[in-house]
Design a protein around this nucleic acid. Structure first.
Length: 468
RNA sequence: GGCGGGAUAGCCAAGUGGUAAGGCAGAGGUCUGCAAAACCUCUAUUCACGGGUUCGAUUCCCGUUCCCGCCUCCA
């Protein structure tokens, strides 16, 4: 069955068909972080949705070429570096490094390219695009020396957000000092330098300044992926005006359609409320790791709700994730153990879990349906095992299905850390004590193992030791 | 005011014109020296409310209520 996506532009569920004539390559542009701070879990919700998208497309045999930009110059980064009294690049580098560490913790597959807005190659391209827009009448220089996009020249502006610009209600968020612009909605392509920018500036045909925010995405997307791409993603808050602006800039430069499919993920709420620093419910990934939650658990929570629905992040949901992952771990362990020694997999029906899982995701990344398939498979596997009706070859088939599913989910438990020698000695001593039915000594040794930071549990096959 | 998205068990959340997936929590059981873990079973006569279409609606249509988002640089 074909993959279907709900395209923000058309608001319709559309069958996915890549631009690539061979039907193989898929070009995706994903709006990345502004590196002025540690990214918060709302940001990562978006990046995890994009990870799911990429991994599922790859599981379906596509080759994904994904670009994610790093916005390393804007009001916030400039403010931050000046407050810290260090150069902009030094300031942003710290948060770029942190961002990549966080991606790793969440098991997000790296994009193909992470271009930075301040890369001279892209600054030059942005200037070239702006020049072209001016030459063709789509942009102009205002009294403040900044360059603005002339919105009334682009009739399609507002189509992505489905906004009728004539009916827009003033919200007071438009700065009053922008009277130099021809029309209030005109957005900046190039910002003329002012004192607050310090030494952050680049030369341009219009004087010293820096690029506006929107132009970087148009420049990097067309530079790295070509004039037209398959999919462009971001959070819903990017729809207007950011993505509208990207469309305007790109299409007025290239003369044709910029993006085929627009996908946007809904916002994250925390404990039922909008996440905000003032409400005290603002969390970076690091905050949660410091509280003892793992990247895998956070991944589960942020991953397991359909991207188009608002996700209510709670500590209860983290605890639920921990339990659910434990259930998966136990199942995988059981499969590994039972399948050991089987020369090859059988054609057991439960081995079809992987294809049923993928079919669920084909439907606009229906992760809930896909996880339903997984957990049904887990219960059915255990039930059949308990009845003694599963052979090692069957277990191998189911394990193979899990491995395929896990290429998308990335929920597999980390390799168990090796048990240190001193702990192992305690475990061995305890095994001897248990063989002698010396329960007092057994319990004493369990307490020592516990004190050393390890957890021991008993089963009929002996002890299992895991890190606490 | 405009545009859009929602309302399914204690919480999270699929889904379908034919009578409610799944996860967590909870209860019971199996196992166990104890503990823990694990596994199994059970848990919505009902899908915000009122009409309508239909043999039949949670699912389609109309209306109502409530919630949320966006409306010019927040993923």
């Amino acid at each position: 069955m074909a993959i279907r996506f709900l395209n923000t532009y058309t608001r319709a569920l559309e069958e996915f068909q890549p631009l690539d004539a061979a039907g193989k390559q898929v070009k995706i542009y994903t709006c990345g972080p502004t590196v002025y701070n540690y990214a918060h879990i709302g940001n990562f919700r978006a990046y995890l949705f994009e990870d799911l998208l990429q991994r599922h497309l790859e599981a379906r045999g596509y080759e994904v070429n994904r670009v994610m930009n790093l916005t390393d110059v804007d009001d916030k980064t400039i403010r931050g570096c000046r407050a810290a009294g260090i150069p902009l690049t030094q300031f942003t580098q710290k948060f770029k490094d942190a961002f990549f560490e966080d991606l790793k913790a969440l098991r997000i597959k790296p994009a193909t390219t992470y271009p930075s807005a301040t890369d001279p190659v892209y600054i030059a391209r942005m200037i070239a695009m702006i020049t072209q827009l001016i030459d063709n009448g789509y942009a102009y220089q205002a009294e403040d020396k900044s360059i603005y996009f002339r919105l009334n020249k682009f009739a399609d502006y507002g189509k992505l957000a489905h906004l009728n610009l004539e009916e827009l209600r003033p919200t007071g968020r438009i700065a009053n000092d922008e009277y130099e612009k021809e029309s209030v909605g005109d957005f900046a392509l190039w910002k003329a330098w002012d004192e607050a920018d310090g030494d952050v500036k680049w030369p341009s045909p219009w004087g010293q300044g820096r690029p506006g925010w929107h132009i970087e995405c148009s420049a990097m997307s067309t530079a790295l992926l070509g004039d037209e791409i398959d999919i462009h993603c971001g959070g819903v808050d990017n729809i207007f005006p950011h993505h509208e602006a990207e469309i305007a800039q790109a299409e007025c430069c290239t003369g044709h359609k910029f993006v085929r499919t627009w996908l946007h993920c809904a916002h994250l709420m925390v404990e039922g409320q909008k996440m905000s620093k003032s409400a005290g419910n603002f969390f970076t990934l690091r905050d949660l790791l410091d509280k003892g939650w793992t990247g895998r658990e956070i991944r589960y929570v942020l991953f397991s709700v359909n991207y188009r629905l608002p996700l209510n992040f709670t500590f209860e949901s983290l605890a639920a994730a921990r339990s659910a992952l434990g259930r998966i771990d136990a199942w995988v362990e059981r499969l590994a153990k039972e399948s050991a020694g089987a020369p090859q997999a059988s054609a057991h029906p439960l081995g079809e879990a992987a294809s049923r899982f993928a079919e669920a995701l084909d439907d606009d990344l229906n992760i809930s349906g896909a996880l339903g398939v997984l957990f049904e498979t887990i219960r059915e596997t255990n039930r059949t095992f308990d009845k003694g009706e599963l052979t090692p070859a069957d277990a191998k088939a189911i394990l193979a299905a899990w491995e395929k599913i896990n290429t998308v989910l990335q929920f597999q438990k980390d390799e168990a850390a090796a048990v240190p020698q001193d702990v192992q000695a305690l475990v061995d001593a305890r095994a001897a004590a248990r063989a002698a039915k010396n329960w007092a000594l057994s319990d004493e040794l369990r307490a020592k193992i516990d004190a050393a930071g390890w957890f021991v549990k008993d089963s009929k096959d002996g002890q299992t030791v895991t890190r606490k």
